[in-house]
Design a protein around this nucleic acid. Sequence first.
DNA 1: GTAAAAATCACGGAATTCGGTGAAAATTGT
DNA 2: ACAATTTTCACCGAATTCCGTGATTTTTAC
Lengths: 221, 221
Amino acid sequence: MEYEKPAVLLVDDHALILQGIKFVVEGMSEIGEVCLASSGVEAIRAMKSKFFQVIILDIELPDVSGFELMEIIRHMSPDSRIIINTMHEETWIVKKMIRMGADGITLKSANTEEIRSALKTVLNGEKFFCDEFNSIRKMLRLNGDTNDYQSLLTKRELDVLKAISAGLQTKEIAESLHVSVNTVESHRKSLFSKFQVRNVVELVVKAIDNGIVHLKSRNKF
Amino acid sequence: MEYEKPAVLLVDDHALILQGIKFVVEGMSEIGEVCLASSGVEAIRAMKSKFFQVIILDIELPDVSGFELMEIIRHMSPDSRIIINTMHEETWIVKKMIRMGADGITLKSANTEEIRSALKTVLNGEKFFCDEFNSIRKMLRLNGDTNDYQSLLTKRELDVLKAISAGLQTKEIAESLHVSVNTVESHRKSLFSKFQVRNVVELVVKAIDNGIVHLKSRNKF
DNA sequence: GTAAAAATCACGGAATTCGGTGAAAATTGT
DNA sequence: ACAATTTTCACCGAATTCCGTGATTTTTAC
């Protein structure tokens, strides 16, 4: 054999999923070495010592976000193909992944065959997206992805949005930001307009759904 | 050997996790047969043909919820120990799992050793909870778990809550439920009171956070 | 069959939201 | 330095929310 079989790096903080994917990938005749990393730093360390044709990546990692890691990979190892393996079907995540140029996307619910298929497709130089995402991609292309709220918001609008999501009302927000009520109402109106919603509930739900504000923080013991 | 090694049933719709756990469990000398099920019906079918000492269960399944399946297991096979393996650290899920009497709880981020440890502990007749949950349990005992919103709500209140979360306002809700505005306002007040919140935003956020209303439905293409 | 819980409705009032319109000051980018 | 953007602020009015208090009819549970 004159050339090496392609090496694959798996990055996921869930040990079980790591094991699962490893099991599947190692069973493929076209794949060579399979390395594991359970965090961003481990992944980076692994990438320094070796070139991986394909990196299968989880987006939620303990240290860096999968998105940041993706940027790093693109710089450190621009020729590596990246497959995102995600739990999340939320639109903003999908959009971001596609925008950042992932070579493939699979869901964690993907079965053995889908992972194999994704790997083969990507190794072949093509892009792989599971069926669920293809419809989303099509839709994004159609309307030019007009719903990129995050980057559409100004800093101040974001401040107000977060405050609203925390349950504060206009007067309280004005106090906490040291501006007048009128100002906050102005930002409010911008938000309604940008999100195309009629009231705070719709606004907050849409913001959560698009990953601009998060629930997690509220839910700690 | 005079007695059978205990059989284990793994239920999870994520093929990769199924593979991962299987790999770990099969490597344990104290475990006998390991069976897999990727849905509630498959799990039930498996349980009909065989008794499993331990059932490791995901709470999000395509057909029935893990909670419902847990009820079914308790009836079909009351002597089976149940370990919940979950992605979710949200309080309401943890509470519900504990209340329903799970014998063990592990996170999907659990490593190989934790799964083994959980299995051994449960087989030994004890309960296993990963560190993250022990603190929650302690806390729940302390304040008598006063925050069980879901079971606290009446059907109508739930209707109104869902409508509110969908961004509808009182008048619209009244129309859609075919009742007067006054009635809806009455339910509203009950909700505010039960959730101990001051406005709809806090209400909706808390409801989402406690798993009473969900974002998913809104986020489809 | 009766007590408890839930669902329905009513009235009044203060506070807040939401919609429109406009405009001045501060910041940013090039 | 100049245009563009952002942030700030103002006023008005209708609609809606939020709060209190209380009452009648249905439904549920034992």
